Simulated assay, not measured.
Amino acid sequence: MPMPEHIGIYINAASKHIRRHLDSIFYEYEHLTGTQACVLGEISHADQEGWPYYQKNIEHHFGMRRSSANSLISSMEQNGYLTRAPVKEDARLKRLVLTEKGQKTSNNIKQRLDDFEASLSALYTTEEQAELLSLLKRLIDQVPDPKCTSCSNSTHQERM
């Protein structure tokens, strides 16, 4: 009797496959994972748009727990990619700011991230892409992470 196919197993496998592929793309950069490369890109984009970027943004956008986001930020800080700058209006908040090394690296990796995203998009028609995104967003909204308190009761649209 063949094993039944399970949606969760395929989603998990796809996620790991993409993460490993991104890690291999950015292997040449000192201590930089694919997730960290994406975070650099997000912070750089926010800076270009004039928006402040905080740890909570990483937690929401990447679906991370607070401890995981903090560990990722600490590692990137230790490796010289970013710093945490105090916010005048709220001493508890620390804005994430790219260092010169972080900005230079972000500029260097932007095209690679864009190329990877284009290669994923090329696998599907425009209609399939829209349907896939809709299904994934619904999945994220409907399967809450009980350990991610910052993710509870928020819709995917708010996170993205």
Results as ranks from 00 to 15, higher is better:
4 P>D: 15
5 E>C: 02
5 E>F: 03
9 I>H: 12
10 Y>Q: 13
11 I>V: 13
12 N>C: 03
13 A>L: 08
13 A>M: 08
13 A>H: 10
13 A>S: 11
14 A>Q: 03
15 S>H: 05
15 S>A: 09
17 H>E: 04
17 H>R: 15
18 I>T: 04
20 R>M: 09
21 H>N: 08
21 H>A: 11
21 H>M: 07
24 S>R: 13
24 S>D: 10
25 I>Y: 10
25 I>K: 02
26 F>K: 02
27 Y>W: 13
28 E>A: 06
28 E>S: 10
28 E>L: 07
29 Y>D: 08
29 Y>E: 12
30 E>L: 09
31 H>F: 14
33 T>N: 11
34 G>I: 01
36 Q>H: 04
38 C>Q: 15
41 G>R: 00
44 S>G: 09
45 H>S: 12
45 H>C: 09
46 A>S: 13
48 Q>S: 12
49 E>K: 12
50 G>I: 10
50 G>T: 10
51 W>R: 10
51 W>D: 14
54 Y>I: 08
54 Y>F: 15
55 Q>W: 00
55 Q>Y: 00
56 K>H: 10
57 N>T: 02
61 H>S: 05
61 H>M: 07
62 F>V: 00
63 G>A: 12
66 R>I: 02
67 S>D: 09
68 S>G: 09
69 A>D: 09
69 A>W: 06
70 N>V: 03
71 S>A: 15
72 L>P: 02
73 I>L: 07
74 S>D: 14
75 S>L: 10
77 E>H: 04
78 Q>C: 05
78 Q>T: 08
80 G>E: 04
83 T>D: 01
85 A>F: 04
86 P>S: 13
87 V>W: 03
88 K>R: 08
88 K>F: 06
89 E>N: 06
89 E>R: 14
89 E>M: 04
90 D>T: 05
91 A>K: 09
92 R>T: 14
93 L>G: 00
94 K>Y: 12
96 L>C: 01
96 L>K: 02
97 V>M: 12
99 T>D: 07
101 K>S: 05
101 K>Y: 12
103 Q>N: 11
104 K>F: 13
106 S>Q: 01
107 N>Q: 13
109 I>T: 08
109 I>C: 02
110 K>H: 13
112 R>K: 01
112 R>C: 00
113 L>Y: 12
114 D>K: 01
117 E>V: 11
117 E>M: 11
118 A>R: 14
118 A>I: 00
119 S>M: 09
120 L>K: 05
123 L>E: 14
125 T>F: 06
125 T>Y: 03
126 T>L: 04
126 T>M: 02
128 E>V: 07
129 Q>R: 15
129 Q>A: 03
129 Q>E: 05
130 A>Y: 07
131 E>D: 15
131 E>Q: 14
132 L>A: 09
133 L>I: 04
133 L>G: 11
135 L>H: 11
135 L>F: 14
135 L>E: 15
137 K>D: 09
137 K>V: 01
138 R>Q: 13
139 L>T: 06
139 L>Q: 08
140 I>L: 10
143 V>S: 10
145 D>L: 06
145 D>S: 05
147 K>T: 11
149 T>I: 09
150 S>H: 07
151 C>V: 04
151 C>P: 00
151 C>H: 11
152 S>Q: 15
152 S>H: 14
153 N>L: 11
153 N>W: 06
154 S>E: 12
154 S>K: 08
155 T>M: 05
156 H>A: 13
157 Q>W: 01
158 E>P: 01
160 M>F: 11
